[in-house]
């Protein structure tokens, strides 16, 4: 268990000893596949389904990167990694991109050698409690015991909120999502706390999901997004614009079903997105139809969202903040031009 952290740490030290090839894209091309660090099972984000296929928003983002490079969304190897080990593993070169519903924070961006390439899900930390407890607000959690998992921002947010509102609750920290949710289910804790999207997914693992509710309070800002190693600008740019292309495609109403017709569109914005005008693909050292490949093989942001966590899925998360900026949300991508 923890031995892995030690080993990873040593690996990191050893891997760092080997001069890291600065060019991740060349490595990915040479390998013939993308290596993508994902969670060990987070419904809606990166979770193996009954047939063992990875599904979710984080997973589909990596497929989009693979589609842009190889024109094949399946040229991805998913590397499950725990919350605690993910940054060390990325630094040690175990994968090329970390897509692990990771909160973009200043310390991680500036102090830990990561480069966040954007936000693919705006989230916030919440609380889940039993309906039978009669609790309807987080402010009623005075003296309660809460379960959460290590390696996330959740521990700090919970402590901040407790200090700010003088709640004095106790937080028990488990290593894995499966362990914290099992302990909560067994009654060790009065509540569970982590990102709302995580709670929505983890609630499905409980014996009787309907007996539990999410409290209305959102106690933190959790902009979740993929990250790469700092220092490889070309790779960072590529990953960033794959995400922007997905968001722009939704904004331009280009989706996996109509993308072939859209190739004949007269809209200059659509023509630039799909590589009919301008040399944006070449600038990323990709082909001109890089965004076409993403949309055709994986879909635009809205399609991926609905498929992974939307109202048609067990998580039933409404778009909310994650709607496009012109539809009441804050999802916004710089233009391709």
């Amino acid at each position: 268990m923890k031995l892995r952290t030690l080993v990873l740490g040593l690996l990191a030290a050893a891997a760092m000893a080997v001069p890291a090839s600065a060019n991740t894209l060349d490595n990915v091309r040479k390998n013939g596949f993308l290596r993508c660090g994902v969670s060990e099972g987070q419904p809606g984000f990166s979770n193996p389904d009954a047939k063992g296929n990875w599904t979710g928003l984080d997973v589909d983002y990596c497929r989009a990167v693979a589609a842009a490079i190889f024109n094949d969304p399946n040229k991805v190897r998913f590397v499950p990694v725990s919350f605690a080990e993910r940054f060390t593993a990325l630094q040690a070169g175990q994968f090329d991109i970390l897509s692990h519903n990771t909160t973009w924070t200043m310390d991680r961006d500036v102090g830990q050698g990561l480069e966040f390439i954007g936000v693919d899900f705006y989230d916030g930390q919440g609380f889940m409690v039993r309906k039978s407890s009669g609790i309807t607000s987080a402010l009623q959690l005075k003296g309660a015991t809460l379960c959460t998992q290590t390696g996330t921002t959740s521990e700090l947010n919970a402590a901040d909120y407790s200090r700010a509102h003088n709640l004095g609750y106790k937080v028990i920290v488990y290593q894995k999502a499966s362990e914290y949710i099992a302990a909560y289910d067994a009654g060790r804790c009065d509540g569970a706390t982590t990102d709302r999207s995580g709670l929505a997914g983890d609630r499905l693992k409980l014996k009787n999901p309907a007996d539990h509710i999410l409290l209305p309070e959102t106690i933190s800002k959790e902009p979740l997004g993929p990250a790469v190693r700092q220092g490889d600008q070309q790779w960072g740019d590529l990953c960033r614009w794959v995400l922007f292309a997905m968001v722009n495609a939704e904004e331009l109403n280009v989706n996996s079903k109509n993308v072939d017709q859209m190739m004949n569109s007269t809209s200059p914005e659509v023509r630039r997105l799909l590589g009919k005008e301008g040399g944006f693909g070449q600038e990323l050292t990709l082909t001109a139809d890089w965004a076409y490949r993403i949309i055709k093989r994986v879909g635009n942001y809205g399609e991926v969202y609905e498929r992974a966590v939307g109202t048609g899925t067990p998580l039933k998360l409404p778009r909310g903040l994650n709607n496009l900026w012109n539809k009441g949300g804050i999802m916004y991508a710089p233009p391709i031009r």
Binding site: K2, T5, F83, T88, G111, T152, Q175
Partner: peptide, 11 residues
């Protein structure tokens, strides 16, 4: 080696 390592990244 868990929480502090995660918050600081000083592996």
């Amino acid at each position: 080696a868990g929480t502090v390592l995660n918050q600081t990244g000083q592996a």
